[in-house]
Design a binder for these strands. Structure first.
Lengths: 349, 349
DNA sequence: ACATATTTTGTGAACGCTCTCAATTGACTT
DNA sequence: AAGTCAATTGAGAGCGTTCACAAAATATGT
């Protein structure tokens, strides 16, 4: 078997009887090519199965056709069981890749051991060798000011997912406060008068907003703060279990729980089962994440569905636009969805 | 803010007072460099923060430092709810990326719409532009003979995950038959005499092997075939529900269910709940996948844990070795784990 | 028809590396 | 001390593109 010779732009040029540069113009959709010539070149590209070599393109031009996605290793499946991982990563990748594909870009992933404290050197290495056209920062990296400043200094456009703060960035996020208000009111309308919130970490922006909105929604309904306990402070299953044990042991325990992510909602389901509480009859549960598996829990969870994939997709789209010299910076709010399944109901009695 | 000038190999060479080529030797760990010189160059690399440009490396040399991972779009989270997606992808990425990172390689993903029938052109495009050093094929692409042949013709080393068949490939897999035997015996030992198998599709290699082993294990124990019904034939939640309804409506229904993946195991949990059957008292359930969320189901599933991430990691490692001119082809069996949690128990009475 | 704009096409250089091969250095023989 | 061989270093070419131009072709105005 002879190895098929790699066809280059010169081959296409020769076959079409034009110069290298004209072919380049055609494949880049450049202006000033006679329609007839363009067509002839396109036909040859097709016939020879020509695909531009990305490395060569990068060498010659300014673009790399690469988007780098920075992800927290601790949030990958490896840590699912410890309670930190989730399929955020899966979803984010999906959103990003789909968008890249559409523009013939490619997505390269980097997993960062955030806790190791070597984030910037690690990213510097990847950025230096890949020279991506843009970088997507997902939590918790989007909140890393030092990193963001470094990228800015390098002149690499950067998109933050789940973060909004202004500046010369692409920020993509959802309306966390609105979602929390909607969820809390749903519970209030059902008749709940004591609601617990299993909150995420204090330094996580979206969680902060949700806390605030939770407080406000209860206050508006005239519910006293002690009937709206907020359990602190990470996203882990195990901690949620113990926080919940305490909450439910109170004199007049909450009849509904809002969990800041799915894993803590699962924890609520477990604790309820352990204490012989039926969900939703004895305890309503709502999650604030809605990763795909949630539909299959027993019973299926009512949840706020975050537009995770869409957010990363949007981030990619903006970075790609930017790399083409188009406008792209800005803040983009994407709609969430409130999915009512089987874990909310009016309280007993 | 002045943009930091990109430091090139020439800069390092000048700073170290050696030639370009010597620096190249040092960064590639080449032989024949005086220790003193090597050290001096390394110091300059460090000091200037030099990172080799991947594209330039690709242009000059033969390697691209890129591994391409081909994934079935239908198996991403997008299709979780329809029952096809899962976090396989997440795990596979993790395994691959971790390995790449170790060797300063990078992993690029490609999501293929398998059903669209344009697999090869899609991959040709990615392979042509990226020129990866190797390609990782995950199910169902690893079974795509046409694709495998195409890659072979291109001279691109290719690793198949969850597939073993010989030939000049890297095949990484687990002992499906052994796992099925172990699981079936576990149930038999517990006292079950009627066991249902919710099997995956017939054309999926590993599922075939599991069917076979299931049959054999029952036969060995003297269980008649009608007490070992096999429910056909995909990996979806919804279909599993209906198959299961039928199985459990039989005159002497199974007291234990083996599901070929987690989603079908969840389906068993749902159906049991609907029929008022307690798991594991009235029905034992075992899954053959063990994605991370399984631990949090109510009750937590007993399962075979597939070494998914490890398999992709191994695949990457072999491809990287190959790209360095080392040996790498071969078949590699990785160990699975049988995790007994809370969904298996002796049958009632 | 002529000069002048505009569109279209082509040429040479550059990008940052690795390859091949030649030149230099140093160590070891005899 | 000269000769041989291996270890170390360097120089030039080439990889496949795009860029900045220059050249050619065509259109426009008078």
């Amino acid at each position: 078997m002879h190895k098929p010779a790699k066809v280059t732009i010169e081959d296409v040029a020769a076959a079409a009887g034009v110069s290298r540069q004209t072919v380049s113009r055609v494949i880049n959709n450049g202006p000033n090519v006679k329609p007839a010539v363009r067509q002839r070149v396109e036909a040859m590209v097709e016939q020879l199965g020509y695909v531009p070599n990305l490395s060569a393109r990068r060498m010659g031009g300014a673009r790399s056709y690469l988007i780098l996605s920075i992800n927290d290793r601790a949030r990958t499946f490896e840590n699912w069981t410890s309670g930190r991982g989730n399929d955020w990563v899966d979803q984010m990748l999906y959103g990003g890749m789909s968008e890249c594909e559409r523009h013939n870009y490619h997505m390269v992933l980097e997993l960062i051991d955030t806790d190791a404290g070597t984030t910037i050197p690690q990213i510097a290495r990847a950025v230096g060798s890949l020279r991506p056209d843009g970088v997507i920062l997902t939590p918790p990296h989007c909140d890393n000011l030092e990193l963001v400043a470094w990228l800015e200094r390098q002149g690499i456009p950067c998109a933050r997912v789940g973060h909004y703060e202004g500046g010369n960035f692409v920020d993509v996020f959802m309306d966390d406060e609105g979602a929390m208000r909607e969820v809390t009111r749903h519970l209030l309308d059902l008749g709940h008068r004591s609601i617990g919130f299993l909150a995420g970490p204090l330094n996580y922006g979206p969680s902060q907003k949700r806390r605030k909105a939770f407080r406000e929604a209860l206050a508006e309904a005239g519910i006293p703060p002690e009937a709206g306990p907020i359990g602190a402070g990470n996203f882990y299953f195990d901690m949620a279990v113990s926080v919940l044990e305490t909450m439910l042991a109170a004199p007049s325990p909450p009849t509904a729980i809002i969990a800041d992510n799915d894993k803590m909602a699962f924890a609520a389901l477990h604790v309820a089962a352990d204490r012989g509480l039926k969900v939703p009859d004895d305890l309503s549960v709502i999650s604030f994440e809605d990763t795909p598996g949630v539909r299959f829990s027993v019973p299926p969870l009512t949840a706020i569905r975050q537009p995770t994939a869409a957010m990363v997709g949007k981030a990619c789209a903006q970075l790609i636009a930017l790399s083409k010299g188009e406008e792209g910076m800005g803040a983009f709010e994407l709609p969430y969805e409130f999915v009512v399944r089987a874990t909310t109901k009016a309280p007993r009695g």
